[in-house]
């Protein structure tokens, strides 16, 4: 499996990583079903990844996908509380053979120097 970057890749859905203990549902995005990335909150009290809800408003209209309440893009507040909580949750490195466990905020740094990372073979260029 490939390491999930905290920054890279578009569109930016939630964090698809292995939480240990498992992720609580209150920190799960109802759209992508992953851990909230750049969490925002709606006036109706629902949390989404910023890019997931912005895409939903653009594609399916100005409604909250959970309870169908009217929702405009300018009503989304950055939920910095949820963001901080999620970044401090414990996750496992997904590289085969690696047993390291760390806060989500440290995963990117770990993956760049993980001993078990798959590197392309210098001879055949295969991963």
């Amino acid at each position: 499996s490939t390491p999930t970057s905290l920054q890279g890749g578009t569109p930016l859905q939630g964090y698809d990583v292995e939480f240990d203990p498992p992720l609580e549902s209150k920190y799960e995005c109802p759209i992508c079903l992953m851990a909230l990335r750049a969490a925002v909150q709606t006036p109706c009290g629902h949390r989404f990844c910023r890019s997931c809800i912005e895409k939903s408003i653009r594609d399916t209209g100005q409604r909250c996908p959970v309870d169908n309440e009217v929702l405009r893009e300018d009503q989304l507040f950055p939920d910095n509380f949820a963001k901080r909580e999620i970044l401090s949750l414990m996750v496992r490195c997904t590289n085969v053979g690696c047993t390291d466990k760390m806060e989500l905020r440290r995963l990117d740094g770990h993956v760049t120097k993980c001993e078990f990372a798959t590197v392309p073979c210098l001879l055949c260029q295969d991963a």
Partner: peptide, 12 residues
């Protein structure tokens, strides 16, 4: 202008 009513917390 950054303060908002946290209805998620309220529900919890």
């Amino acid at each position: 202008d950054e303060v908002f009513q946290d209805n998620c917390c309220k529900r919890e």
